[in-house]
Amino acid sequence: MVAELPRYSRAAGLSQVRWRASSNESTVPPSPSVQQALIEAAAHAHLYPSLQGDLLTADLSARLQVSPEHIVVGGGSLALLQHALAAYTGAGTEVVHAWRSYEAYPILIGVVGATAVPVSLDATHTHDVDAMLAAITWATRAIIVCNPNNPTGTELPRSEIERLVTSVPANVLVLFDEAYQEFATADVDGLSLVRRYPNVVVFRTFSKAYGLAGLRAGYMIAHPEVADNVRAAAPPFGLSLLAEAGARAAWADTTHTKHIVDVVREGRGYLRHEAAERGLETPVSGANFVWFPVGPLTAQLQEACVAQRVSVRAFDGEGVRVTVGDRDAEDAVLAAIDSLQWNFSPQG
């Protein structure tokens, strides 16, 4: 079974480039307060962290105004998603998800022995709610919604989110991956849904808007019974001592988080505008990247970017995803587009 699992892709040319715009990392380093918290925590690295990230859970609970029983923290939102799938799916069950969406989903689903049911995005590169609902069968135990979606950056309107949640059977978990929620242009906040629907689960991360991709920290918000089952499926000490210290400091430093978000919003606006000036239209992005739907010319654009010393993430035959936040990297991507001499046409 393991041999049949899809593999997580790598960006091309990483050893040749100056700028890395392929991994959706923050281009802004952690704030001095986060760095100091990590130094202080490192002095206690000989000790185990708290069993379930208790201090971070308390911080999250206070600001989000949900009880600690609703919150599970761990080594990134992706790890928490895998624990949720392990707790509620498995052999003989199905998990519905959009495609193209985050490429880790079919891997995680396969690891727990469930069957992935991919559903194509619509013509606007957005989740097709009707098609996803139609894909639900008696074997479906979960449906994953990446909002904003990776790699297209598109957001589901609030009305469509509500329609999806209210149409899904009560025994099917609706798993909202909100890794890019802080950058969204629309009303992307599944927390209110958790309060109303016991089958809704929200996943968020400290890797993007908090600039801590290297530490691996995330959290999940769910009905207490669901949260308790996910904790049971997760190994103890899942959040490292350093990750908890860094996440707590980043959570407290709201000014720095706003700075990261502002840098991203400025960068994606600039890149989308300049691409449009060159004839390449891109979907509105609610994330820290821009999606270039260039279809069969994907490999050509990726090669041109590497030639300009910037890495991007290419999805063969579909498009290229470019992380924003570094103006030099954005300009290198634009130089790559210019080097193609209009030898492309945007794909719908």
Rank of each mutant, 00 (worst) to 15 (best):
R10M: 10
A11H: 06
A12K: 12
Q16C: 04
V17L: 02
W19G: 00
E40I: 03
E40W: 08
H44K: 12
L56A: 00
A62W: 06
L64H: 11
V73W: 08
V73G: 13
V73S: 12
S77P: 13
Q82A: 14
Y105A: 03
G113E: 04
V119S: 04
D122W: 02
A134L: 03
T140L: 08
T140K: 10
I143V: 15
C146R: 05
C146H: 15
C146P: 14
P148S: 15
P148W: 14
N150F: 15
T152L: 08
G153L: 09
P157M: 07
E160N: 00
E162V: 07
P169E: 03
N171C: 04
N171P: 01
F176S: 01
Q181G: 03
F183S: 08
L191S: 03
R196C: 05
Y197S: 10
N199E: 09
V201T: 13
R204Q: 15
S207Y: 12
Y210M: 14
L212G: 14
A217K: 13
A222R: 11
R231P: 01
A232Y: 01
G238K: 02
L241K: 12
E244G: 12
G246I: 05
A247Q: 06
A249D: 10
T257V: 15
H259I: 00
I260G: 11
I260M: 11
R265K: 15
G267M: 12
G267Y: 13
G267A: 11
R268Q: 09
Y270A: 07
H273M: 06
E277W: 00
R278N: 05
P283I: 02
G286N: 08
V290E: 07
P293A: 09
P296Q: 05
A299F: 00
Q302K: 02
V306Q: 05
V322T: 10
A332E: 10
A336I: 08
N343D: 12
